[in-house]
Amino acid sequence: MNQEQLVRIYKNSVLARRFEARIVELAMAGELPPSLHVGAGQEVAQIAAIEALRPADYILYGHRGVAYMIARGVSLADMLADMAGKEGATSRGKGGVMHVVDVQKGILGESGTLGGSFVVSVGVGMALKRKQPDTVVTYFFGDGTANRGPFHEALNWAAVQKLPCVYFCENNGFAISMPTSRSTAVENIADRAAGYNVPGVVVDGSDPVAVYEVMEQAVARARAGHGPTLIEAKVTRLQGHYVADQQEYRTDRNVVAEKDPLPKLQHTLCDRGMLTQAEVDGIQADADRQVEAAVAAMRAAPLLAPEVALQDVYA
């Protein structure tokens, strides 16, 4: 990974962090629905993984935040419109912030039932193999989601067909209130890769360089026609499951901020002379400007017309 890429990961992570913080503010104030699952703490891994993809590659994603979309350059205003049910909404008021879609940018969408995209990803891989060789699809999902049945069916059949799929598990140690240790028999989700005869790799999700390198290998393997890889990034969910979650169930909630990968990345960049403090300040100010411009655009946009509810069922 070159310097420019690491700086880009940082910039996008700052933007995702600030954008989501602003969404929470607007949700607490009642201006937006409280439907975001904040991705803070996981966005560095999400964005570093996407950095290893080409623009023509595709992603399916989970509910944990909007950093995936930011890494792919989806308009912030459109995502706010998704939340507000306004003109510009990428899913036209049907999916909200959890089903942001932009096929041109490779964002294929999300399954509301956790893990539904495992099986969809297999079909996407089948189509790519036949129609868009050299292109891969990556599915991002949580540790809890890995316990759903479609995980098994999809990994097995994707492996049998040697599909260009990458499975990227963000293990944050929780599924809502349930610690992974109480729900999951294996130590690492990636240990299950052996059951599908595919590589399983555990990586520190707070280290963007490590995530990028692991993804680079998985993507190369997928492109070469050797089939899927199961990656597990150990990450930290810095906040609650949903906006108002008080996290009474969580014993680490007072120390969790120490695991924030974003200040760590900032120090690395500054220590290595890749960014000056002035540039860091500039990046943050620029992120805030983009967020405020998006909020203004969302506020100015008209609500979707009621008849939109009747549209888009059939082609």
């Binding site: 990428t90 899913s91 049907k94």
Partner: peptide, 10 residues
């Protein structure tokens, strides 16, 4: 899948 994604998929 189509409806939930605002008609983006066929």
């Amino acid at each position: 899948w189509r409806y939930m994604h605002g008609g983006a998929h066929t």
